[in-house]
Design a protein around this nucleic acid. Structure first.
Length: 616
DNA sequence: ATAGGGTTAG
């Protein structure tokens, strides 16, 4: 039966690697030479020269017990332990090595696992289905799912029996690369081979769908799995609850949360944390606090993730001192703040231009050895926003010697800072520098360049870049269009602006409130009030509700062109929606009323309590 | 000993 299943698998799945010869060890054949770390070379050379053959000493015994328990302080500790153990005799079995590799996976040392798998094999230890699943998982995490499939092919060829975990690992690998269709096909192959999908199989697909914005399909699959007799668990529900929260559909998330509790599936700390995050993101603080309480009451303690989410949300609201209180509370409850906690705090201070406080945290992190690449980008951003570009450059320059290589985000931050500081040339040099270091420019850095060129008034160069983007793989998105429309509007070229605005729709892109505000502002400036009003009214039809800024823009247009009736009508409408007049609108209204126009009194009567126009 | 859900920067 098993043999038949295997044969069917071999027939249904066409993996070229499954039909190669196997004279060489598994990983060498895969050409894994580039995964060799210095550690690996070190262990190999030592291994051949001197291996202890005498009976184990006490020291050996403690080394062995440490290795076998697989509880290591950090990566270096784990590698040191490995280097010791492979000099001993007899060597640990694949079971112990498997536990060791699994510990490395928990530390996200995927590349190291791949290297060491080869070392283990070269020591004469044969892999089994467990260790190979670990290896496949590591390839998948590095987005090398096809290498994972090569291992799978060898499992079959070597006569090992893949289990459901092997399949689920590969299915997850496909999902991580967004290849959901291939993942579903593979599930079908698996079923054809006689394996039944379990709750993990479904959950992997559910979370894959969620990650790629197909929450509705994920919800459908949730129902489907129940119908097929596979009960979802807390992990399945949590994946969907999190996706709903990220789509800002917190009410739906809460309803799914109740649904799982009705089914007696207990939410865990991750479920609560996702919901709290969703509520915080929408500024629903009291509900978040209540849930944190509906959580502790169920004997579920907040963990580092929960605390970090609270810290970050408070910082983003500008409430850094409240975030500091959370730090105290977490320490009191035995949860040590980590790099993420401090990075959020730093960013909070940068947001409030309290650079000294941010620098203090950065230095503290350096002192405690927990500073990371995020910390650098955050502080560089802080310096840029506070117009301290030289210090930003200096910090950027220090990164490599401290063991952190700048990534695309670090470059983008600094390039934007340089443009704003008027240092276009340096920005350009830095961009080339980034490309020569092998960082693929993404849509955001192109938008940054586009914005820099427009701000500098170099519209021709901006247009050239935009055209280049259109021809490339990296097509302009709604943000790129918005930046360009802003640029041409400010240059007074309304004809071009209108053209780009309609081209945006033609490309199937969706303008947002910023895009609308910009084009409306441009039209108003040129005195094309009717057209501006038409665009403004067209917003809702295309599913984009005007915000306070949008109202202010169109109102200012009418006020500047002395169309007071239209302006006051729109102010009334704006106030009714809970938005208020900004400083410019207020000034224009006051100006008109000082000139004897009764608009101010009219507005005072219309907007009860004078909410609409804030006059001190 | 192997699989699935949550946090920070442009």
């Amino acid at each position: 039966m098993i043999v038949t299943a295997k044969l069917r698998l071999m027939k249904t799945m066409c993996f070229a690697s499954a039909f190669r010869s196997f004279r060489f060890p598994l990983l060498r054949e895969l050409g894994m030479g580039n995964f060799q770390s210095p550690t690996l070379l070190f262990t190999c050379s030592f291994h051949s020269s001197s291996r202890a053959t005498s009976a184990h000493t006490h020291k050996d015994a403690s080394l062995i017990s440490k290795f076998n328990s697989a509880s290591f302080r950090d990566v270096d500790d784990a590698l040191a332990s490995f280097n010791h153990i492979i000099l001993m005799h007899p060597l640990p079995s694949i079971v112990e090595f498997g536990r060791f590799l699994s510990a490395l996976v928990r530390m996200k040392q995927y590349q190291t696992v791949i290297c060491l798998s080869r070392t283990i094999e070269s020591l004469g230890i044969s892999h089994n289905v467990y260790s190979l699943a670990i290896l496949i998982n590591c390839f998948c995490r590095l987005h090398l799912v096809d290498f994972g499939f090569s291992i799978f092919g060898k499992i079959l060829k070597f006569g090992l029996e893949p289990d459901i975990v092997t399949f689920n690992t590969l299915i997850n690998g496909l999902c991580l690369e967004g290849k959901i269709n291939r993942a579903v096909d593979f599930v079908n192959d698996m079923v054809a081979g006689g394996y039944q999908p379990n709750v993990c199989t479904y959950t992997v697909i559910v979370s894959g769908l969620c990650k790629f914005g197909k929450t509705n399909v994920a919800i459908w699959l949730l129902k489907e799995m129940i119908e097929r007799g596979c009960e979802p668990n807390a992990v399945t529900y949590t994946a969907i609850i999190d996706a709903l929260c990220k789509d800002k559909l917190v009410a739906e998330a809460v309803s799914l949360f109740s649904q799982m509790r009705d089914k007696r599936i207990s939410p865990n700390v991750i479920t609560y944390t996702c919901l709290i995050h969703g509520l915080c993101n929408l500024g629903k603080w009291s509900q978040a606090r209540a849930l944190l309480k509906e959580m502790v009451g169920h004997n579920i303690s907040p963990n580092i993730f929960t605390f970090n989410i609270l810290i970050d949300s408070l910082c983003k609201e500008g409430l850094v001192s409240n975030a500091q209180s959370i730090i105290k509370i977490m320490i009191q409850s035995g949860v040590e703040p980590n790099a993420v906690s401090y990075n959020s705090l730093m960013d909070g201070y940068c947001l409030r231009s309290q650079l000294d406080e941010a620098i203090q945290i950065f230095d503290l992190m350096v002192h405690n050895g927990i500073v990371d690449a995020f910390s650098y980008s955050i502080l560089i951003n802080g310096y840029c926003k506070s117009k301290r570009i030289d210090e930003a450059m200096q910090l950027f320059g220090e990164m490599p010697q401290k063991g952190f290589l700048p990534d695309t985000i670090t470059y983008t931050t600094l390039i934007q800072g340089l443009w704003n500081a008027g240092k276009a040339r340096t920005a350009h040099v830095l961009f080339n520098n980034m490309c020569s270091h092998g960082h693929q420019p993404d849509i955001i850095i192109f938008s940054t360049l586009l914005e820099g060129l427009c701000k500098q008034g170099d519209l021709d160069e901006a247009l050239t870049l935009f055209k280049a983007m259109e021809k490339s793989q990296l097509k302009p998105n709604h943000v790129s269009y918005t930046i360009l429309i802003d640029g041409v509007c400010k240059a007074g070229k309304l004809h071009d602006a209108k053209e780009f605005f309609s081209r945006l729709f033609e490309k199937g892109l969706q303008p947002n409130v910023y895009t609308y505000s910009i084009i409306i502002k441009g039209l108003c400036k040129k005195g094309l009030l009717d057209e501006a009003y038409k665009v403004f009214r067209g917003m809702e039809d295309s599913g984009c509700l005007p915000d306070g800024c949008c109202y202010n823009v169109i109102i200012q247009g009418f006020l500047r062109h002395a169309d007071v009736p239209k302006a006051s009508k729109l102010i009334e409408e704006m106030v009714g929606k809970g938005f208020s007049a900004d400083a410019t609108t207020t000034k224009l209204v006051l100006c008109l009323s000082r000139n004897g126009h009764p608009i101010l009194r009219k507005l005072r009567n219309q907007s009860k309590g004078f909410k609409g126009v804030n006059v001190k």
